[in-house]
Nucleic acid binder design. Sequence first.
DNA 1: TGTTAAACACTAACGGTTAGGTCTATCGTC
DNA 2: GACGATAGACCTAACCGTTAGTGTTTAACA
Lengths: 191, 191
Amino acid sequence: MTAPPGRRERKKAATRQKIADTALRLFLERGYDAVGIRDVAAEADVAVTTVFSHFASKEALVFERDQDFEQRLVRAVADRPSEEPLVPALRREVQALVRHCTAEGSAPVRRLIEGSPALREYEESMSLRYAQALAAALAADPRLSRSATACRATARFVIDAYALACRADDPGATTDEVFGMIEAAWDSTAP
Amino acid sequence: MTAPPGRRERKKAATRQKIADTALRLFLERGYDAVGIRDVAAEADVAVTTVFSHFASKEALVFERDQDFEQRLVRAVADRPSEEPLVPALRREVQALVRHCTAEGSAPVRRLIEGSPALREYEESMSLRYAQALAAALAADPRLSRSATACRATARFVIDAYALACRADDPGATTDEVFGMIEAAWDSTAP
DNA sequence: TGTTAAACACTAACGGTTAGGTCTATCGTC
DNA sequence: GACGATAGACCTAACCGTTAGTGTTTAACA
């Protein structure tokens, strides 16, 4: 899986990382709107086109690391112990994700996101993709025989729980409270 | 409330309507991405700046009519008969909204929206604003004494129901099914 | 009738994003 | 080690949504 990466790939990864680091630093220093793509490119000493060959948009520069969010949710469903019920497994994973996103070190980034409508919108639209992936995972699990609608709704509810908890005063308690509601909703769809 | 509108207001409304109609027609004819703001302005015979003085963004041109969506949800909560429970009242309103958005005449517009990521994203972000207004209405209703978290979560669930139903094969049945889940979730938060 | 402010126009720009074409370091293979 | 293929990066120039700045018309109202 982790075969020795060639020099080309290493250089590419290094460039990508340099861009992401530079961008985040500038955004935190001067504010998201006050930093242009051309600034980021200049400071990272790359061409503007190079920035866009690594990141699909300016907003994506801020969410550089969150590529495994989706996978973690899907795995929490698919790889859970044979007899563990669905909702507790999801709650555990969401608790972990929420802790990660409300950790001490993430506070400045979170402030950055909350301070920019463009970033908030982008995050929401990422979440929607996660909900679709999660819905597919729910529909695919042979242990859960629920309607496609129930799967899609539950997936969105779970994403809602994450979104609400990340912005709540007490993220842990909020996650638990919303998951209580999700459990009731899910149980009501039992065949 | 409906005082005789002066000529000025009538002209303004006419300009706005002309822009919206022209834009929608061009979008349907050539596709959203293939039509620029400059095209819309030229075809409507107004300046580009005039377009933006009436509409906040290109996407807003497509959602011209949906300004009362938010109000309808809030009123469905606040103005419901004294003894009608919350969830059925909301379900009735969402059913009506879903019917409106899946009506025969709305089909081309819906296809337009689903065909453009920008429009989908914009719609989602509108929905989020609705969820916040609805959450506030829930929290403000003296007949419902629930935690802020329960209100916020329920509001998002309701918006999820709407979003899922609008895209579902059988919108009515989907609304009912998701609202069954929402009812269970809401009841589980009874004090 | 004259004053005021809203609505609109025009130009020019800004900032994110992309297309076109080139250069070069790396890779796989001989 | 030499050799062609190609990925990765570069540069320039533009496109498009959006906004600022600056008039000009016209309806509303004293």
